[in-house]
Design a binder for these strands. Structure first.
Length: 365
DNA sequence: CGACGTGTAAC
DNA sequence: CCTTTTACACGTCG
């Protein structure tokens, strides 16, 4: 059965939201920053609007670097701190809109979603196009935001299509157009192919999507292993059988940059206390408990290390998070003695079967 | 196989 | 000199 999949991406989401909140920002370069709090301007740019991108101020670069670029341009650039709670509220309202149009909705991130619309469009690309226009209209009316939409026979191609024309774009790739559409793209545009994979492919003279599509899987197995090798060639051919599914989170983590580098457990105890509280809040919101708890450390050389422990039974107790992570932290400190720059906690092996629900399930039986 | 740690990637 | 959060694949160990 041929599916019709839609991928929707909100345009420069955080920056657009801030422009709505402060209309005087319109037409000015705006950069949304994650300040780490170590020094005045330490941290990175999370999102910027198109005006700022023209100056080279884009996601991922250090805030200090962005300020230099702003200085050089002679323009007034607006730097704002992220306000995740606010963005999340707006995201939730938009996802509700999408939910009403889709057979199945898969939220891929705060500003992205996949919709399986096969049933609602009765398999018609024309109907899907109309639906996309309706969705754009509704998001513009209710939230004053634009989005870019891709429509294609699978998630892989839909995602590339939504990126093809932005902002406020709509790109439809019919099944018989997939091959041609992909062949013109650089490898980097394929979801899941990052710098390391590109480097490995270039080592065997593959540098285009077309080249990868023609490649014999056997040739890739020594580099990537059978599983990933097959996946890579499928990707280049526009083949993707993965289904759109409502995602439930499998882990919850929180990590932060320390005010000062440290290898002293006494400095970390209050940090553990804070992070444990943060995780507890998220667990409550999702009504989940956990069986595994890990600490995540990033040392001064920016090398990451994780260490975890799985409990006998699922729990949601903050004190357990604190106690176990304190033990794990001591263990890592004894092992290396390296100073940490960043520190985080993660809970996984999540269990959504709360006592209440179990009881009602019993009664149902 | 479950548990654990690392690497890669996307946002 | 550099954010945060999540996911998944893979190797390894017992």
């Amino acid at each position: 059965m041929q599916r019709i999949i839609m991928h929707i991406d909100l345009d420069q989401f955080y920056a657009a939201v801030e422009e709505n909140r402060k209309p005087e920002l319109k037409d000015k370069p705006v950069a949304i920053c994650v300040y780490s709090g170590r020094t005045e301007d330490s941290g990175a740019i999370s999102t910027s609007n198109y005006t700022a991108r023209k100056l080279g101020i884009r996601a991922g670069i250090p805030i200090s670097h962005a300020k230099n670029l702003a200085e050089k341009s002679g323009q007034e650039v607006i730097f704002l701190p992220v306000d995740m709670d606010y963005y999340r509220d707006i995201s939730e309202r938009i996802m509700e809109i999408l939910e009403n149009h889709a057979d199945i909705l898969e939220q891929a991130s705060i500003d992205e979603a996949y919709l399986d619309v096969t049933e609602k469009t009765k398999g018609s690309y024309n109907a899907a196009e109309n639906m996309a226009s309706k969705i754009k209209e509704e998001i513009r009316e209710k939230e004053n935001l634009t989005c870019s939409i891709g429509i294609a026979p699978n998630k892989l191609v839909a995602k590339i299509a939504s990126d093809y024309n932005k902002p406020d774009g709509l790109t439809i790739i019919m099944p018989d157009e997939v091959e041609k559409f992909l062949s013109s793209l650089p490898l980097r545009k394929l979801h899941g192919i990052g710098p390391k994979t590109i480097e490995a492919l270039e080592s065997i003279e593959i540098s285009t999507v077309a080249g990868l599509a023609e490649c014999d899987v056997q040739k890739l197995i020594p580099l990537f292993g059978g599983n990933k090798a097959r996946l890579l060639v499928d990707k280049a051919r526009g083949i993707d059988y993965s289904s759109v599914e409502e995602k439930v989170s499998k882990q919850i983590s929180r990590i932060l940059t320390l005010k000062n580098d440290t290898n002293n457990i006494d400095d970390l105890i209050p940090v553990i206390g804070y992070l444990a509280g943060e995780l507890k809040k998220k667990l409550e919101k999702k009504k989940a408990s956990f069986k595994t708890i890990s600490i995540i450390t990033i040392d001064t050389a920016l090398d990451m290390q994780t260490k975890g422990r799985t409990l006998e039974n699922a729990t949601n107790s903050t004190s357990t998070i604190r106690e176990v992570s304190t033990m794990l932290t001591k263990e890592i400190l004894e092992g290396s003695g390296k100073k940490f720059r960043r520190f985080g906690l993660r809970v996984s092996s999540l269990d959504y079967g709360t006592k209440k629900e179990q009881k009602s399930l019993m009664e149902f039986k």
